[in-house]
Design a binder for these strands. Structure first.
Length: 387
DNA sequence: GCCG
DNA sequence: CAGTACG
DNA sequence: CGGCCGATACTG
């Protein structure tokens, strides 16, 4: 399968908030089918590019700023992300002239006749499970602890670097046995290599032990486990002498006015959220939501993702992706679904909230995307680029 | 922490 | 706007 | 040194 051979794309493409990560999925797919793809950066040589993929919502000014070029000077096609989706889904490079990006919808519509996949014909993308498997869990689990601690400390720089390192390790196609295998890789500097060496030899990090002895860190790390409590609030609470989640719970009952609605829900239900969910229960919850979805759109796509999809026996939350053209579907489902008890945040394409079907309240996330984005969203939510 |  | 959360 | 994932997205 190399129908993308000769196609050389640069992606400025960002979709429904997953942004860089969804661009990565497009890149992976194009390369799998023999094409060449890169995420656009200032190093990109536009002379070698056949298609630039841009988000439909971007403005012309912004795009020219990013590309640092007048659009009229470009020789390649500037197409929207649907071109990329449909090329991959239909396994055939699409005629770019149907997908030429344009800032104003009316212009775009004129040039963009009915090219979108018929929903009932939309084929299922082969999910690449290899890319979802983390062969370097022995390293990432330790580095993740380090990342969390720096996050708690408010050291954004280190926590971002460690996130990048974790992501690279997760995507590696082999298990690391030796730091030589990582030398020269982006983001892997001397100190990181030393830490990895230490983990390979001893299984843990000395640095972690010293962090464990720091009371403030320990308290803040624990408090930030509560949904809605970040490091700012955690530090504030620590200074106030609130050192445990149960004392936070008591404090919040007496002083509810000091917290947002979201935080109050997180505090109240924290104990329930921290208990894991069986696959059976995930399926039961999903089934209820699914029937609600189909009540509004019989053609909708529906998949359970997240850790359930990664095969875990016990899941932290319920992750659902819906594919539909109905932009109000998510609102309707959330409002009318009997098992949904709380809304933490809600928009047309993302629900973060709480539901209950048995004895405990459970965290539920629902993503709602257009049908031709569906399998990309599913893959994205399984892969876990960041974590 | 890493990178320019 | 800052804070928080999601992948 | 200074900046760091997302022209994220929601809440208050």
């Amino acid at each position: 399968m190399d129908f993308c051979k000769g196609v050389n794309i640069a992606i400025v493409c960002k979709v429904f908030g997953f942004t860089g990560a969804s661009a990565e999925v497009i890149k992976i797919k194009f390369e799998k089918y023999g094409g060449r793809a890169e995420i656009y950066s200032d190093k990109t040589n536009l002379n070698q590019i056949s298609h630039i993929i841009v988000p439909s919502k971007i403005t012309e000014n912004a795009l020219e700023k990013i590309l640092n070029k007048k659009l009229s000077d470009l020789k390649c096609y500037i197409v929207n992300e649907e071109w990329a989706y449909n090329t991959i889904i239909k396994k055939q490079v699409q005629n770019p002239s149907f997908y030429i990006w344009s800032e104003t919808p009316s212009q775009a519509q004129k040039r963009k006749p009915q090219t979108i996949c018929q929903v009932e014909k939309l084929p299922k993308l082969n999910l690449n499970f290899q890319s979802t498997q983390n062969l370097n869990y022995h390293l990432t689990k330790e580095i993740e602890k380090l990342k969390n601690l720096y996050e708690v400390l408010g050291d954004k720089g280190r926590s971002i670097t460690y996130s990048n390192i974790i992501r690279s390790l997760r995507l590696l196609p082999f298990k690391v046995e030796n730091t030589k295998q990582l030398e020269g890789m982006e983001n892997f500097g001397k100190k990181t290599l030393n830490k990895i060496k230490e983990i390979l030899e001893k299984g843990t990090l000395e640095r972690l032990k010293s962090f464990r002895q720091n009371e403030r860190l320990q308290v803040m790390e624990s408090l930030t486990q509560v949904h809605g409590v970040g490091n700012d609030l955690a530090y504030f609470l620590y200074k106030k002498g609130i050192l445990t989640i149960s004392s936070l719970q008591n404090y919040a009952i007496i002083n509810p006015g000091e917290f947002t609605k979201t935080q109050l829900i997180g505090i109240e239900l924290h104990n329930e959220f921290s208990s894991k969910i069986s696959r059976d229960e995930v399926e039961n919850i999903s089934q209820t939501i699914k029937s609600q979805v189909f009540a509004y759109d019989k053609e909708a796509f529906f998949e359970i993702c997240g850790s359930y999809r990664r095969g875990r026996e016990l899941c932290g939350d319920v992750d659902i992706v819906i594919g539909t053209n109905d932009t109000d579907l998510l609102y309707k489902v959330v409002e009318n679904c009997s098992i949904i008890t709380h809304v933490l945040s809600l928009s047309g394409h993302k629900f973060i909230g709480v539901g209950k079907i048995q004895d405990l309240h459970r965290r539920i996330d629902i993503y709602c995307v257009k049908p031709n984005e569906f399998w990309f969203a599913v893959q994205l939510i399984i892969i876990d680029f960041y974590d």
